[in-house]
């Protein structure tokens, strides 16, 4: 072997990495929560009769989706103070990552809503169901299974993008691994462990997403 893996060092840094993993999960969870709600707002605001609003929101979603998240994180973090708002790394990180993924989720919702056949809307009109009830009781339950795969993928996606928060000093996994690296000049163990931890978290999450997707489909009677 041309490299030496040091187990004592591994055991020494593992607790730090594990507690940083908690932060990573927290960041992913909080960001995802923001994205789920904000994404719905973005999706529904494209379904109003106001064409200008639709156009503006569409362009905004495209903009967010085609520019790098890491740049958006810098933007939020540095532009805040410039206009007189001081945001902590955590706050700016959550805003940036939540906004970024809300654009993706709005596309998922949009696709899901569009996947419901026109006939379902017509049947709701024929029963005089109100718009709110039409969405809530008929359209959303059918759109949801179509959204689920996409929503699950982006949950895993947001998890894997949290390392970018390290660039503004959010103390998640990557940040901690960098810190260990610069203290000890050993990169092999921290970076490899980070990779393994990500695999251990993201693969089961992806599996869980798939299982719950099937469960939801069965539950709603949509096969």
């Amino acid at each position: 072997m041309m490299f030496d893996w040091r187990w004592d060092f591994t055991w020494e840094i593992l607790p730090r990495l594990i507690s940083a993993t908690a932060n990573t999960l927290l960041a992913a969870g909080a960001g995802y929560g923001i994205a789920i709600v904000l994404g719905l707002v973005l999706a529904l605001s494209q379904r109003t009769p106001y064409r200008l609003l639709t156009l503006v929101v569409r362009e905004f979603v495209e903009f967010i989706r085609s520019t790098p998240l890491v740049l958006q994180i810098f933007f939020v973090f540095f532009v805040g103070p410039q206009i007189g708002i001081r945001l902590s790394p955590w706050t700016s990180g959550m805003i940036a990552i939540g906004l970024h993924y809300s654009a993706y989720l709005s596309e998922v919702y949009r696709g899901g809503l569009n996947s419901v056949p026109v006939g379902q809307w017509e049947a709701c009109s024929a029963l005089s169901l109100s718009t709110r009830k039409t969405y809530w009781r008929i359209i959303i339950p059918q759109a949801l299974p179509a959204c689920f795969a996409g929503m699950g993928n982006y949950l895993v996606g947001i998890l894997k993008d949290t390392p970018m928060l390290s660039v503004i000093g959010v103390a998640e996994l990557m940040h901690t691994a960098n810190a260990i690296g610069s203290e000890s000049y050993r990169f092999l163990e921290p970076y490899t462990l980070v990779g393994i931890i990500f695999l251990l978290v993201s693969l089961p999450t992806a599996g869980l997403v798939r299982i719950s997707e099937m469960w939801v489909r069965r539950k709603l009677g949509v096969y």
């Binding site: 690296g181 990169f187 970076y191 980070v194 990779g195 990500f198």
Partner: peptide, 24 residues
């Protein structure tokens, strides 16, 4: 496929840049 999709691009980048040299 699972290895590269299961971890972050940033982790992979650091690994390739900082760790791969240890393998020569």
């Amino acid at each position: 496929i699972e290895l590269f999709r299961g971890t972050s691009l940033l982790v992979q980048l650091y690994w390739i840049f900082f760790v791969l040299p240890l393998f020569g």
